[in-house]
Design a protein around this nucleic acid. Structure first.
Lengths: 249, 249
DNA sequence: TTTTAAACCTGTTTAATAGCAGGTTTTTAT
DNA sequence: ATAAAAACCTGCTATTAAACAGGTTTAAAA
């Protein structure tokens, strides 16, 4: 079995001070607040942990002891649904937060997280974060806005799942991956299995395969194994544009 | 047509200082922070507005200029979906916040709000709130936790909509209304139309009617017009207990 | 390099649910 | 009190999408 986040924490090198070297984005929560986050007197409050492709870094149902900022890599955030059916809540990339659901209010993680590529994560303990938040209103305010955004995204997803057809949801998922990860030499820059597309779009593998086949016939997409390319983003958008909104940003 | 929130604001009496007289709950955000919220030097920062049953107090798509705390009454929060199909995001009761979606980040309300009963609302301007939040980390922290909770609720709803059957979603809606509004002389203490049940459960009026009929035959519920009573909450819960979670709290 | 497993694909069947049509009852407004 | 408008109800039909079964191809491991 894969090691839990608590185990990972012990394996990793503790970093008491410093900043996030990778990211320099002005919109990055961690970068904007690196002085607060990295210069704590609390011991063991911040560590960097590395995990390999396929490794589970948050176990659904495990006690919440902190949260993660992605330093590098891509992570999928999942929930186990009815009959153990996996549901992908979102895909997360550098500068994003994971494990924030239920922060402060819930004792156990309501989601799991699995690395899709080798990844590095900043880990901050609950205590460290709580202390930092309660003493830095601007940071807390930014976090609040982050949650507000997530809430909007989630509620858009509620709407789309209950009102879009499966085909539309699959197209929407393709556009979401394109927006979020862009493309590399014509193909979407995040290789996913048909099953993963299905788990995000809220349908089955077979449906995704069928819809991909149809989209290929219609020359809206092309595929080489799990590498998927979008022929014309605008054209694909038009397929769902009557509904005028998108799953995610 | 109904008046917009902006118009309501002008109609209402401005209250510069004071506290929320109705609520004394220790878990109420507004009550816990009433000194901060009501003793502002900013003019026009806080008002109380009244609106009648059926009145729309937030128009979907209107500019965000503040948010509301419910002082009394019940409000439904809606989104207009595909083909103008109405979707009920949640039902809100006293002490709850409305209009917080997109606060700070979005220019326009992504939801609408309609009073289901005559209601009174505290209105706080965006500026007032922003100022108060940035100067009171504890309040901001509480708001952040409120958003975190809402996010969890919303993501549970995503899961349930994509994985529960219509029957289960309708039962879940009944339990949600029961949890949130309790019952009065055996009947749920919030009368809703079948259409409203459908809009919340993400289905059609006809399905709700059919499922109510079935549930009546099975003696799980009883109904007198739009007054619905649950025979045995535990028994009803058992119908969805395999799935072990609920839409809302 | 061979074996095994995982991922991918397609046709068919079955179940769930939305939509429509045509009623009745209840509520609301005049 | 009466008319009009909602809301409620039921049967039927059409559609959508899930499940199943049986394949092939691709990727990973021994």
């Amino acid at each position: 079995m894969q090691s839990t986040s608590a185990q990972n924490k012990l394996d990793s090198k503790t970093v008491i001070a410093g900043t996030c070297a990778v990211c320099k984005s002005a919109s990055c929560l961690i970068h904007n607040n690196s002085e607060l986050l990295f210069n704590s007197e609390l011991p063991q409050s911040s560590t960097i942990l590395k995990c390999k492709k396929g490794q589970q870094l948050i176990m659904e149902g495990a006690p919440v002891n902190g949260l993660f900022f992605i330093k590098s890599g891509v992570v999928k955030v999942i929930r186990t649904g009815i009959n153990g059916r996996e549901q992908i809540v979102r895909f997360a990339k550098p500068c994003e937060i994971i494990g924030h659901r239920g922060f402060g209010t819930q004792e156990y993680y309501s989601i799991g997280a699995i690395a899709l590529t080798d990844s590095e994560l900043h880990y901050f303990s609950k205590e460290h974060l709580q202390y930092t938040l309660l003493n830095n209103p601007k940071f807390t305010y930014d976090m609040m806005l982050f949650y507000a955004n997530e809430l909007n995204r989630s509620e858009n997803k509620v709407k789309s799942i209950s009102q879009m057809t499966v085909r539309e949801r699959v197209i929407d998922t393709l556009l979401y991956i394109h927006r979020k990860f862009g493309d590399l030499r014509g193909f979407l820059n995040l290789p996913l299995s048909r099953k993963e597309y299905a788990d995000y779009a809220g349908t089955t593998e077979e449906q995704v395969i069928r819809i991909f086949s149809a989209l290929k016939k219609e020359n809206l997409i092309f595929a080489k194994g799990r590498k998927i390319g979008i022929t014309d983003v605008q054209l694909l958008k038009k397929e769902i544009s009557e509904h005028n909104y998108f799953l995610d940003t």
